[in-house]
Structures are given as C-alpha cells and as structure tokens.
C-alpha cells in the first residue's frame, strides 16, 4: 500500500525544517514508502487493550531541589554562536515578529 507521495514528503520536510532538493524528494518518497509499508505492521499487533509504554523503566517523581548552580560563563555560551552581538545570539529576522 503506497501512501507517501512526493507532496507528502515535501509537506513533512517543511514541518521538519529541512530543505530538500528535488531528487531527494523523489528518492525519499520511494524509500519511505517501502519503509512505512514494512513498519505499518505495528498496527496489527497493537490492539486497543494493550497499554502504551513510553519509558522503559517504571519510575516516577524524579525532582530536583530548587537550588541554583553557577551559570555557564557568557563567553562559553556565545563561543559557538554563528553570530552574536551585545551578549546575545544574532539570528536572521524572524517572520511575523512584532
């Protein structure tokens, strides 16, 4: 059952914020189709009475005391920034920003 069209790949790539070349979209559409077909079988065994497991080990209530630790030095914070100014990260304009 083929479900993943080129358009679908393009839509998901936009959601994942990844620019894809046209040839990549073509190739991924084909590959994902095969992969999704083979993994869709989880549906068959996952009956409604089976609860979902999100964490491998059953643990609860892991909390931290509300006590500060020293912050990273600003120089370290910004050391890897592609661009910085006035102690802040400089990023390209954000659409829709006031």
């Amino acid at each position: 059952m083929s479900t993943i069209s080129r358009d679908e790949v393009a839509r998901v790539a936009a959601l994942a914020r990844i620019d894809l070349r046209e040839d990549e979209v073509d190739r991924l559409a084909g590959e994902l189709d095969v992969i999704v077909d083979s993994i869709a079988r989880v549906n068959e065994v996952a009956t409604p009475d089976v609860p979902a497991t999100s964490h491998p080990l059953p643990m609860t209530n892991v909390f931290r005391e509300d006590v500060p630790v020293p912050a990273l030095p600003v120089a370290d914070v910004l050391a890897a920034a592609p661009d910085a100014q006035d102690g802040r990260f400089a990023v390209p304009q954000i659409l829709g920003e006031e």
Binding site: V77, D83, Q85, D86, G87, R88, F89, A90, V91, P92, Q93, I94, E97
Partner: peptide, 12 residues
C-alpha cells in the same frame, strides 16, 4: 549586520 538585513538578538 547580517548582510544589512533585519535580524534579531536572542537572550535565553
């Protein structure tokens, strides 16, 4: 500074 365009500064 980014190619003379508008940009934003981010403080976390």
């Amino acid at each position: 500074r980014i190619h003379g365009a508008e940009y934003s500064l981010v403080d976390y």
